[in-house]
Every structure is written in structure tokens, then in C-alpha cells.
Computed example of a mutant assay.
Amino acid sequence: MADESSITMDVRETFEGKTSVITGAASGIGEGIARVAAEAGMKVVLADVAEERLQRVVKDIRSAGGDAIGVVTDVTDRDAIENLADVAEDRYGEITLAVNNAGIESIGFSWEIDPATWDRVIDINLRGVIHGTRSFARRMISRGTEGFIANLSSVGGLGIMPTQTPYIMSKHAILSFSECVYLEMQFAEHPIHVSAVLPSSVRTRIFDEALTDRNSGFTEGQRVRMAQAIEHGLTIEEAGRRILAGIAARQFWVSTEPEATAAFAAQRARYLEELRPPALTQEMRYLLGE
């Protein structure tokens, strides 16, 4: 892995002066990507439903000399995504980079999770990525120049975890969706690079804000243990630099920690090759509180 300064330089060579749109950009990995994109000289359009946090990040980027705007956007709404793209093009012209990042977590047994929570996780994590990919792909294809679409999966997209089923399922689906779109771009011979981003341990608030039954000692305890497990991970800016470097290098598999991703992939490959039944690991048992 190159050092952080060279990563920023690589990203600048590819993206300086161009426009990026990043969903879920008011916090977490999306915020990190937005800040690094601005540092690299991109014009950045940040999208999120959390207006106050969104404007805080926009203000910070501008204070640091970056060029950014915020657009309150619900990624589950196709029309809202189209509006986001329209606003971005009206303000900055061609969109070169679209990062479909918005996502949420939930904790609980599949049969106990409220149907509304199931719908919300799938709508944001999966349909939001689909809406964004389709909208930005059409616009990039119509202009015929090089473009980049990055979809946020997770190392969880290479694994399994009880009581995180909606999230894990959505990340597996994002990965397979991105693989298929990558092949479609190849077949249609469009100069659009598709990346699947698989972050590992990054210091975000995803578990602090995970949808749980807060009256349940089990789900609350697991939420705390999961949050503790990532508190020593990469900062969001470190993750953003590594992610943008991978995208700029036109990689399909983009990781914040390549060794961890390779280990997950190898474990998954063995599991599938041997057609093993799912098994509770020691790590799973710890996170579940056993």
C-alpha cells in the first residue's frame, strides 16, 4: 500500500478539476471520500438525508479551500436521485465520479426485525445503489467519455453474520450487482469503470446508529461490541484516500485493507468449494456475547 501522500497525488492526477457525486456523504466513509476528493481538487456534490450534518461537512470543505455543495437526497427515491444528478450537472457540468455509498445497519434476529426496518435497509443499501448506478451510468454513457461508478459493498459482502442479515444480504447483492454492471460495460464497450468497494475496519458511527430494539439487552449488547470492534480502525479520511486510489487505478475490487479482504475472500472460496454448511465461528460468538 502506498503512503497517504502518494495516494492523494495519484487521485489528483486522475480526478483534479472533475466532478464527483457522493451519497451518504454527511458522515462515515462517504464523508471521508468527499473530503479527500475535495483535497484532490475535485468539485464535490455531497448527498444525504441529514441536512444539518451535510451542511457542516460542506462548510468544512469550503473552509479548507474546496469546492462543494450539499443536496438533501433520499436515495430510496428515484426522482430524488435524478434531481441530485440534475443539480450536480447544472452546477458543475459533467459528472466523472459517482460513489453510491449511502447505507445503514440493523441488528436482530431475522424473524424479529420489524418489516419496516427490513424495507428501510434494503431500500437504502440496495435500491439506493441501483438507482444511483442507473442514473449516473446513463448520463456518463450519453456523453461517451470516461466515467467512474463506485458502489459500497463491504467485506461483509464476502461473509456471513447472524443478526446482521438485512445488512449482510444487501452487501452481497451490491457486490453481485456491481459485477454484472462491470460486465455489461465491457460488453457494450462503454468507457465506464465500475468498482465494488469493500471496506474493512473503519471508525464510523454505523453501529452506534444501527437499527435495533433498544429494549433488548441482546441487541444492545451486540451493538456495543460491534462498535468497539471498529474503534481502532482506519479514520474516515484514511479510508477515503485508499478507496479513491483504488478507483483512480480503475480497479474493480477496491479495499481499505487488502490483506483482510483477501483473507475474507479465501475463506469464502473454501466455504463454497467444499459446500460447507454455515458455522458459528469464535469471532461470531464473541460479537453475539457468548
Rank of each mutant, 00 (worst) to 15 (best):
D213H: 07
E257Y: 08
H232T: 11
V57A: 03
N151H: 06
T163M: 14
G24S: 03
G30Y: 03
E16G: 06
H172G: 06
L275S: 12
W118P: 01
E94V: 09
T165C: 14
P277K: 03
E94P: 06
A102Y: 03
F218I: 11
T8A: 13
A262C: 00
Y92H: 14
M161S: 13
N215L: 10
D114R: 14
V202H: 11
M284W: 04
I192L: 00
V202M: 12
I206Y: 09
I247V: 14
F177R: 03
S255A: 13
R276D: 12
R203H: 14
N125G: 02
L198S: 11
V155T: 09
I104K: 07
A2L: 15
R268T: 01
G157Q: 06
D119M: 12
I33F: 01
P278I: 14
T281P: 00
A265H: 12
G93M: 08
T19K: 09
V71Y: 02
M226N: 15
A260I: 06
S6V: 14
T219K: 00
D67T: 15
R35N: 09
D48S: 09
M161D: 05
A196I: 04
H131C: 12
W111D: 07
S106W: 06
E274V: 11
S178Q: 02
D90N: 15
R78L: 11
E259I: 00
R203W: 13
D74W: 03
M169C: 12
L97C: 06
M1C: 11
L97F: 06
T14H: 07
A98S: 13
R268V: 01
R214Q: 10
T133V: 08
L97Y: 03
A263V: 00
G157W: 08
P258I: 04
T281R: 01
A64E: 13
L198M: 15
D114L: 14
L234M: 14
A37F: 02
V197G: 09
D213V: 05
A50K: 12
P166I: 13
T219H: 04
P191R: 00
E290F: 08
K59S: 15
H131T: 10
T96G: 08
A98H: 12
G246V: 08
T8P: 01
R143E: 08
K43P: 07
D79T: 12
T19N: 09
I33E: 08
V71G: 04
S6N: 14
P258S: 13
M9F: 00
L175D: 06
R223P: 05
